[in-house]
Design a protein around this nucleic acid. Sequence first.
RNA 1: GCGCCCGUAGCUCAGCCGGAUAGAGCAUCGGCCUUCUAAGCCGAGGGUCGUAGGUUCGAAUCCUACCGGGCGCGCCA
Length: 587
Amino acid sequence: MKRGLETLVASAVSTLHARGELDIETAPPLVIERTRDPRHGDFACPVALGLARAARCNPRELAARIVAALPEAGDVESTSVAGPGFINFKMANGAFQRIAGEIVGSESPWGRSRRHAGKRVQVEFVSVNPTGPLHVGHGRGAACGAALANLLEAVGWEVEREYYVNDAGRQMDILALSVWLRYLEVIDWPERPAFPEGGYRGEYIRDVATELAREHDTRLGRDLVEGPPGGDEDARLDALIAGARAALGEDGFAVVADAVLEEILAGIREDLAGFGVVFDRWFSERSLVDTGALARVLDILRERGEAYERDGALWFSATAHGDEKDRVLVRANGQSTYFASDVAYHLDKFERGFDRVIDVWGADHHGYIARVKGAIRALGRNADAFEVVIVQLASLWRGQDRVAMSTRSGEFVTLRDLVDEVGADAARFFYVLRKSDQHLDFDLELAKSRSTENPVYYVQYAHARIASVLRRAGEEGGNGNANAGAGAERSGLGHLSRLTEDHELGLLKTLSRYPEVVEAAAEACEPHQIAHYLRDLANAFHSFYNSHTILAGEADLRSARLTLVEATRRVIADGLGLIGVSAPSTM
RNA sequence: GCGCCCGUAGCUCAGCCGGAUAGAGCAUCGGCCUUCUAAGCCGAGGGUCGUAGGUUCGAAUCCUACCGGGCGCGCCA
């Protein structure tokens, strides 16, 4: 609908231009916007305001000339010039009434576009270190990433959803060490060091340790002699890791590490599935080492003159690519950094041929963007095809009290707890309700409450109400067939012109916005726009529902209204689907 | 100190590539169930859009400074 008007105005402008009545070199981008005030019609175009300066003439007068040059269009009921020079369009009711028919008659979900068809995008999200269960802070990245992926699909992208598993490096070692020390406690091994400050203390560590003891009895028991006291915590941890490695042997250490990794990953996978988030691929950091991809990318950087040695370490010349300082790839002790893996990982993404690569990161990683972008550029790839969507971590509250979250301290609320308590629907909706780069105060009490403060119920309720009406319509149809409602709403296709009440037109107009909202939300990577739209749509429906009886009056009007509410139901279900929320038929 | 993000109604937030009278939810107050789900609807009150300048026909929106808040600034991940 918007598109059509854009074409009309563009045509009028070029007509004036061709006639030499408009003296401008470049036209500003054409914008058609929805009016806020119904007295201004349905759509407004401020193009004359922008053109007037360049053309050095009165905006109102220019607007009038554009209006005069507009081609005929059946959907436009009237056109007017208003205010400082807006061109306002009032659409014919038929243009909106037809929408209901399109929605109900559409085989595939209505409101999608093929704008990006044939292009592939990868969305990497969550990617939480597998050192413990997902907690509520991670939930937002999962909800936003999944919704974003759905949105991109809705505008034609072929999407691959990926989780990057940090299964290499020091954190993994600390994790394995923590489990092994707990294991020594479980089997009551006499010679064992005190549990280190920096170890992982969560209950799940003990669970894995207990499982290890069940499986291996005391066969993984070894004496671990601590070095002399003193030195900092990190040094002590490294010494303990080295000691454990030596005592268990690489194979024995790997048994512990694999056991805990598998356990935790399985838990993460399960938690995400319970949250309605599924990945196409789980990409292992360790595989980058095993396949030599990591070594290869370091060679490439060296060959291209993008990396150099200093103080025994290998550095990436990040400053040459806009970062504030150079970054270490390989430490003086020979260990590569997390960043080095990430460079190799992102090269791998580009080598897989994606047209666009999107990472969804927590806000605490924003300082990391410049170096990764820089590395991509240094590797000769198109850094503009790489985008980072920042998701602010949610602060967790329990009423008035802020809940501390730290994986190592073991004090956190898991995502699973949250889903168990509030349900996946409320959690998903809540997470995407705010713009993702905005802080989110997540109040557990609020999310748990089944009050109207939880907007998800408002939207789902609209869907359930419609489903109920359609069921009733089917029953009254007399055949008791559950699908009878589906027939009833189609029979209204020929009577849509009966929908002339303000509430009916209001609902139709809100429905007509859906394709615009999906497109805007996808282009801006802003799933929250969908959540806000759904609230508007539910509001338009509830208002209509309270003002008019659907299953009353004469047959033509009744069937037209059934078509209207079925169209509404479909759009609500589709929009909820995009953000991963179910559309219940009863509540 | 440097960098990024943010200050909009009592609270939580939309609106931000400049556009007409700044919106929603919650909270507060007042109405609406003999009719299809009241988890709903209708109405009212509530604002120096952090402050001060600047650009413009026009600024919540763009620019600058300042004030206030969050995050990041490791041979950590």
